[in-house]
Amino acid sequence: MEMKKLSLTVNGKLIEREVPTNIRLLDFLRDYLHLTGTKEGCGEGECGACTVLLDGKPVNSCLVMAHSAHGREVITIEGIGTPDKLHPIQEAFLEAGAVQCGYCTPGMVLAAYALLKENPNPTREEIKVAISGNLCRCTGYNKIVDAVELAARKEGK
C-alpha cells in the first residue's frame, strides 16, 4: 500500500497525515479523523449522504480521492454547528420537522448551506434543484424544503 503525506484544512484546522494513496476523502474523514457525521449511503455519488464542502462547493466525498483534496479546504457537518451552538439551518431543520432517520441529514444541511451562501433567497423550486442530488427515503423532501426556506428567512434577519 503506497503511502503519501496529505495536508488539508478540515473545519478550519490544518491536518497533516501519512495516508494511503488509494483512499477516498470519505474514508479519510471517517476512518482517519473519525468525523462520522459524513455518511456513506451508496458509494457511487447517487445519494449525497457523504456531501462535504470542498473549497466551499458541495461534493460527494465518496467520489473524491483523499489526496486530490491536498492543500484544499474541507467543511464537514461537524464544522457547521455544534449541539451548543446550532447553525440556523440546523435549527430550521429541527423546527420544520425535516429530520427523521437522520442519515441523509448532514448531507442535506451541507447542500442547503452551500445553496444559501450563493443564493440567500431561493425559491422552493431552486431549493429542490439544489438538494436533488441528496436522497431522502423518510421525509418526502417537503419538510426539508420548508426548513431551507425557514433558514433563509432566519439568516435574512
Partner: peptide
C-alpha cells in the same frame, strides 16, 4: 434531533 443535525 440535535444529535442528528450535527452529525453526532
Amino acid at each position: 434531533g440535535i444529535a442528528k443535525v450535527t452529525g453526532k
